[in-house]
Design a protein around this nucleic acid. Structure first.
Lengths: 122, 122
DNA sequence: CGGCATCCGCCAAGATACTG
DNA sequence: CAGTATCTTGGCGGATGCCG
């Protein structure tokens, strides 16, 4: 057994996870769906600042990653519901942790983010 | 107390965390530093595909968020070491989870990512 | 309502080169 | 070795409109 001097190649797992959760609203979508908001239109309402197109697109991507199931009700008006797959359930802990961490450090973080954007504004 | 009908406003925590871990290499940087790779040049070697400029910039941002401490040795050639702050230690669990999740699901994910990029190539 | 096509602006990140 | 300035680029996401 050699001692790894530098390589580490930590990339693998981290990079793939970021690939899956990378989009702007992906984590919010997963979280919202886990909370029972299943329909695209409701999701858009629940995620202020998001647009239909991007949400739709990211839902599609999450479906391709088998994070989400898509159930189509063939009726008029059409109705669609997304639910977490088993794989999707396994990412939830990560997202909840991210949310908790953000909540928990809200005050200091807000201040830092604010001062950063101000200094950039100059 | 009103029942929230739709809002949820889950944004807060999640959004801030993504703000902090958002850059392309931020999570890798934090992870590598937690593993004892502290110097910029070593970090760049440890993270294949990264460039000096972006790494440097993201280290700076993480420092501004008080995720990292920067220690400068005034000598020639110059030497700099980054270490995790207490706040930085608290994000580590998230990153480790992301890494583990990615590792654990490597096989299926790789296949999906591959097929996705192929279909896009058309 | 849900999905997709199109067009476009912007910004994060690549490439390169220079200072201390 | 570490950091920054400059220029360029690619692709993500915003806006809008149409169709089933």
């Amino acid at each position: 057994m050699y001692e790894k001097k530098i390589p580490l190649l930590l990339e693998c797992g981290l990079t793939m996870t970021k690939e899956v959760l990378g989009g702007k609203w992906k984590t919010s979508l997963i979280y919202a769906i886990s909370e029972g908001i299943l329909r695209p239109s409701d999701l858009q309402r629940a995620i202020p600042g998001s647009t239909k197109r991007v949400l739709s697109q990211q839902l599609k991507e999450l479906e391709e990653f088998h994070i989400l199931n898509k159930k189509i009700y063939h009726q008029l008006p059409p109705k669609v519901e997304y639910t977490l797959t088993e794989l999707g359930e396994t990412v939830l802990p990560i997202i909840k942790m991210m949310n908790q961490w953000g909540e928990h450090n809200r005050i200091p973080l807000e201040t830092m983010i604010k001062s950063r954007s101000e200094s950039r504004a100059v």
